[in-house]
């Protein structure tokens, strides 16, 4: 089955991203297709490559990036929510004059519009939302 996942909270403060990750992993291991994982609200904060959690803790961003690489997942970060919270890819960093090296979007994530969330609702057989 084709499943869409939505993550509305950032890493560490809320369990939402961890639950979404475990759910996504379990879905893939059962042979389902994850159509897209859409990060919205503070969920966009899962996509910064600049987090440095303690060595003995899980790395939420890296977990997502590695899962994306292993299964060719489409991890989409909402552009409007990302701009509010300082999550930028190269072109957005340039466009807003934030200077060289300001881009902080982690590997495996891409920034796009809210239409990608609606499209995920249309194309997926099930949409599952994780949040606060």
């Amino acid at each position: 089955m084709k499943i869409g996942v939505v993550v509305n909270e950032g890493p560490y403060t809320h369990q939402a991203s961890d639950t979404a990750y475990q759910f996504t992993k379990a879905s893939l291991e059962k042979g389902h297709e994850i159509y897209r994982v859409f990060f919205y609200h503070d969920g966009v904060n899962n996509a910064t490559r600049l987090t440095v959690p303690p060595q003995d803790e899980r790395n939420v961003q890296r977990n997502w990036s590695e899962l994306a690489e292993k299964y060719q997942l489409d991890l989409v970060v909402c552009i409007a929510a990302a701009q509010r919270r300082g999550i930028l890819d190269d072109s957005e960093a340039k466009r807003h004059g934030k200077g060289d090296g300001a881009a902080n979007l982690a590997p495996g994530f891409r920034i796009s519009g809210l239409g990608q969330l609606i499209e995920s609702g249309i194309q997926s057989d099930r949409l599952v939302v994780f949040g606060d």
């Binding site: 919205y40 609200h41 409007a80 929510a81 519009g113 809210l114 239409g115 969330l117 609606i118 499209e119 249309i122």
Partner: peptide
């Protein structure tokens, strides 16, 4: 607010 933004964008679909 951000839910309302989804509704507005979603209208185009």
């Amino acid at each position: 607010l951000e839910s309302l933004e989804v509704v507005l964008i979603g209208a185009a679909f």
